[in-house]
């Protein structure tokens, strides 16, 4: 279900914790699984976590599947719904809003022709509103595919970023 590379990465996570605490690696393992699906997936449905892969991860770590599912649904960076090739999460929380976070989200929304929470028809982009990313000083900030943070996202910077992704 997961590549040898992903399994090796999960094993490295497991190695961080005491031998009888493999469960601790579930957050890392789900993240690794998600990254593999995002990179390998051809459609929005294939890019998010599904019950099969969560169960696989659970079995790999020898924890009940429902326990892994709890984790996958509790932390909001795990994509549980179909997601575009590029998931753009814009922080619109108060400090960011005061420095253009809301404007940035609106700008991207207009530019991509999708509302917040939607995926573009070609499956390329998903636009989401995010909560505090701990980078309020760099506002407006956004995350591309969870891991790449983009700071000071003025309209010009957004244009540049979207052109780059294109």
């Amino acid at each position: 279900m997961l590549s040898a590379q992903s399994l090796a990465a999960i094993d490295r996570e497991v190695a961080k914790y005491p031998a009888d605490q493999k469960r601790s690696a579930v957050m890392g393992a789900l993240r690794i699984a998600l990254v593999e699906r995002r990179e390998a997936g051809k459609t929005p449905e294939e890019r998010c976590l599904n019950t099969e892969v969560i169960e696989f991860v659970a079995n790999y770590l020898q924890i009940p599947p429902v326990a892994a599912y709890e984790v996958a649904t509790f932390y909001n960076m795990y994509d549980m719904k179909p997601v575009g090739q590029y998931k753009i999460t814009v922080c619109t929380n108060l400090p960011c809003a005061l420095s253009g976070g809301v404007n940035a989200a609106e700008y991207i929304s207009k530019k991509l022709g999708i509302a917040i929470g939607e995926t573009s028809a070609d499956g390329k982009y998903t636009l989401l509103e995010g909560e505090c990313m701990g980078a309020c000083g760099d506002a407006p900030v956004l995350l591309v595919n969870n891991h790449k943070m983009c700071s000071f996202m003025t309209p010009e910077a957004i244009d540049k970023k979207l052109a780059e992704l294109n």
């Binding site: 009940p64 429902v66 326990a67 599912y69 709890e70 649904t73 509790f74």
Partner: peptide, 8 residues
């Protein structure tokens, strides 16, 4: 554990 509390 067969039952969980999902989401938050």
């Amino acid at each position: 554990q067969e039952i969980g509390m999902a989401n938050r």
